[in-house]
Design a protein around this nucleic acid. Structure first.
Lengths: 217, 217
DNA sequence: AAGTAATAGAGAAATTTTTCTTTAATAAAA
DNA sequence: TTTTATTAAAGAAAAATTTCTCTATTACTT
């Protein structure tokens, strides 16, 4: 009768997953100068059902106009706020390898409200370097800096076998959420939020669909 | 009444998503020499319900032993096959920037059945270089090589605004599946499989949970 | 040898998510 | 001005997914 990752969640997770795409689409339309967009258009872009879009947007305070659609500017503003993208949150990244480096180079994270304040590693050849203006420190340095800088998120991009060690460290730092890019599952106290982002799930889905296609033909 | 991305899918997608983690866990246990593993153990590792594990594994031909669990070796073998990880598939990657480079460095893709045969870009400074032994070509080169090499997957790691152009190119190459790492949604013929992998969905979920926590306390 | 506890597995129930249906509004066309 | 078509929105229905319940099995303990 244990509750696994309790969901007292008003907004369905699939909805949250889709919203950043709506936002990105609306931002594109705004750049093009389009003032209104209908659920049909968004749905067509996303390859989903239009009522899904309507329902998703109904969780926010956006209201559409019959026969016109939603105001593009409103979608951008309301969705950014709703998703927490309009307030900047600070993060520390541990593991300045190729994946860590890719994240440090991704300006989209900044655009969507995440600022990586510093990176950490144990590899002497990367320590001291700056990756896209973010300095790489030895992991033992600055451990107390997290609280000072109000860093709420830790990003793990180390090899899978070190994930737990890094996670423990981050918890000790007082971090509130961990974004885990390793395939390893980490154990943390209940009040710490963990988001696992693993490529291989996506790969599995692609292969599954590919082989399904083969079965059908 | 249009059917969006029809699912004549025996195995639920959430199940497919979890399976690579079961596999990785079992591989770890095998390295440690553990011979059997119970659904309870796997569930504990994954932070999910044990019956979920049982149900997921029931889609494969793995059978467990009462009071003992599943044979670790069987999980590794059956799951690898089931997920299509034991046959090597070939891919081309377009966009040899930081994210593309990170993927080229990821040995996990190789381990899970994906071989990136070549990378493409338009940036003269990367063209001709080798990233982790994979050569980077100009995008106009070797367009017909895809069929010869039996490349079935295209990986898009270019800036979002170029995603559609690259996708069109890949379709022309005769590719069967596209792994799209840009936030842009691409339009392709119905028989092409598209898997969108965007970081920002994960970011949205973390922020949502963070703000929920705040609301609760 | 008998009892206990842990487990797989099947099926039912509950929950969550998506899709369908209906209604009302209104822009555009006739 | 009237008609038609498109749309948002709410609620119902359907579908998908997860969790619960029960049974049978069997390793381990007493």
């Amino acid at each position: 009768m244990v509750q696994y990752s309790k969901k007292i969640q008003a907004v369905p997770e699939p909805t949250i997953r889709r919203m950043p795409s709506y936002l990105a689409f609306a931002e594109g339309l705004m750049r093009k100068g389009q003032q209104f967009v209908s659920s049909t258009q968004i749905a067509n872009y996303m390859n989903i059902d239009p009522t899904q879009v309507t329902k998703d947007l109904s969780y926010t305070k956006i209201v559409g106009k019959t026969r016109v659609g939603y105001e593009v500017k409103a979608i951008v503003e309301v969705l950014s706020d709703f998703l927490g993208f309009s307030v900047m949150d600070n993060a520390f990244l541990v593991g300045a390898g190729s994946l860590g480096s890719a994240l440090l180079h991704d300006s989209g994270l900044n655009h969507f409200g995440l600022k990586i304040e510093a990176a950490f590693d144990i590899n002497p050849s990367t320590i001291g370097r700056k990756i896209n203006d973010v300095e790489v420190f030895h992991i033992d340095q600055f451990r107390d800096l997290a609280q000072e800088l109000n860093v709420i998120m830790g990003i793990i991009t180390v090899p899978a076998e070190n994930a737990q060690t890094v996670a423990d460290l981050m918890v000790a730092w007082g971090i509130k959420a961990i974004w885990n890019f390793t395939p390893a599952r980490i154990k943390v106290p209940d009040d710490i939020i963990v988001q696992n982002t693993t490529l291989y799930s996506n790969l599995a889905i692609i292969f599954n669909k590919l082989h399904q296609e083969k079965r059908e033909e």
